[in-house]
Nucleic acid binder design. Structure first.
Lengths: 195, 195, 195, 195
DNA sequence: CATGAATGAGGATTCATTCAT
DNA sequence: GATGAATGAATCCTCATTCAT
């Protein structure tokens, strides 16, 4: 199914959101198609009208979440900020987004650690979940001399790794305050910055 | 099931290892009990003789993996190393362990992002997967003035987040060399160290 | 499942009748859902479409049998008969019904002596299996001075006990003729009648 | 297994009593051999040492219960009582016995309405559960002119039917007092007595 | 487009029974 | 005699998917 559909079709949106919610609570395989239909208040046949299979629904949902994420983080960048401020803005935007969209975080987590991930090619996923945008941003940082002159992938590893870990920390109540989160960005900025 | 059992019972070990391998390739729910039995070369009933249910098997497996991990990482610490060297040793030990036990990494990933995680209490999991040991180590670092005087949880977040991310990077072929991994530790050490 | 369904759905009827037959021959637990599906010529899933579980099927079947029984016995009462004649009519109707619906008798016998019975409340069962109708009839008899002025429950005990016993007698070939059955009613009528 | 064993073997007795209790609460098929072993505090192998199969255990248990019943009711008859008094004594003995041995009543109920019953021949059962003794007693009554000159089977039907029904009545709390039970015997005596 | 009854392969679990110690 | 680990056939139930209306 083309994701464009999404924006104009309330049934599809309802299916997406319901699926997201159910997956968060019961996992992929604890979420039956019939349950989705029931909770989204559509007929099972309707889901199959839009999505050829459950796998297809999951993958489309992955697209849907990726779009939402990209929109939220890169849709609001301010050109006038310094590189450092942009770095902080993006990293915190990441964390903020997932704190506000727990189901999506949960979905991504499960998606990446499931066999679904293997089906789609790596590159595809990258662009979907905002990774390629960030890789570009980090490369720029190296070129401008703002970041250490190392392997971008190492920087990306630090960037994403800590972000994901921070979100989990919040989720499981280890990182309790916004302050703690601020601590984390400060630490990694000290790690990645040049000199 | 008592984990002690584990070490002296070849059938249980066989069940554990087989399950680990199957879960890595097919996910939790893609791994049928009958398949485990078949591949572990025991009868289905035998599995149920040791584990009341599939859930129970999974949770016991979690314990088993945690024990193995702890043994591997904290069983070989050298008292004479400097704090920094120990920091590098542990972080790299983490990454090394999972590179050598891909099935366990895969298992943990799925476990934490699944509903199973909710069953066990948070503290339990912490001690199992070596987290509490590392928290202690980081606290020591703060007290000795080796690490920044911030929230330990923030440091832990950086420590684990990057380690996990590095392992994934290796797994998905983004971080290709040992060098890249070295880059990551260097970056975070610069981030967490005092001054 | 709503029993109303029953009367207009040939699949449900087929499931009911098949189950009744199989239970008579092989008992509750000797009757596998798959067997029912097979013999009723529906898919297993279809049974589960109408009944959430085997237990639920059994309980619904209990309702179905109760309805059939009530209809048969109380659907054909003649107002003009004397009390005594009505007494004989009902008692014999009871016996006749079960002689003609052996599977239902067998089912009830098993149902009442099984743990299923405990699930439903006592009153419910009473009305289902025609007991409350008969209690009313006996009470009327006492008030009219046709029956002994004792505890209704004692009368009911005699009424049902002998009827059930007579049916079993026929079933196991002890009571061989209609005459013998007639003997039984005569005996109890002498026992319950006033003076 | 020969029932004689029974009287001198505490393990067998324990198995019997445990089985009886479990069957009362969970039914035949809700009572697993392993559960019996557990609760009777013997090994599964031990049960199979005494009884070749579960069926065999059930049938032996049937014998055991029958023996206990016969002993209780016919072991204490007083020759000097009148026929009527003996009639009352036996009928009430029946009811009393089962009130005091609910598990046995429950067991018999289930046994008779289950496929086990069909395995054993009719005559066998009769003698076991005290039926043949009572048939003799009723025949005597006819010959002496104490009872109506009808089919013995009809009398037996009334005798057993009401007794069983009375026990159930007590069990399910319909017949609340001893008085009510007395009412029942009085009613049937009026029904069966001569003239 | 939308519906939901019907399907049946597949999976978790139970439990009577065996047998080596 | 007694034990209990091991077995695997049999069972209940789930759920993705189809298709006639």
């Amino acid at each position: 199914m083309n994701v464009q559909y999404t924006k104009n079709n309330s049934k599809v949106i309802s299916i997406f959101e319901t699926t997201l919610r159910l997956i968060k609570d019961h996992g992929f395989h604890g979420t039956a198609m019939s349950k989705i239909a029931q909770e989204a208040d559509v007929a099972i046949g309707t889901i199959y009208h839009y999505f050829p299979s459950k796998d297809d629904l999951i993958v489309s949902l992955f697209q849907y979440c990726g779009d939402t994420l990209n929109e939220a983080i890169f849709g609001s960048l301010d050109d006038k900020l310094t590189y450092k401020d942009t770095f902080f803005h993006i990293w915190k935007g990441f964390v903020k987004f997932y704190r506000e969209h727990v189901e999506m975080f949960s979905f991504f987590e499960q998606f990446y650690s499931s066999p679904y991930y293997k089906v789609n090619s790596y590159e595809t996923n990258e662009s979907i979940s905002g990774q390629s945008n960030i890789l570009k941003f980090l490369t720029t940082g190296i070129n401008k001399g703002e970041l250490k002159d190392t392997n971008v992938e190492a920087l990306a590893c630090v960037f994403f790794g800590t972000a994901v870990s921070a979100i989990k920390g919040v989720k499981h109540n280890k990182l309790k305050s916004n302050e703690s989160i601020e601590d984390v960005v400060n630490i990694i900025w000290d790690g990645v910055k040049n000199k």
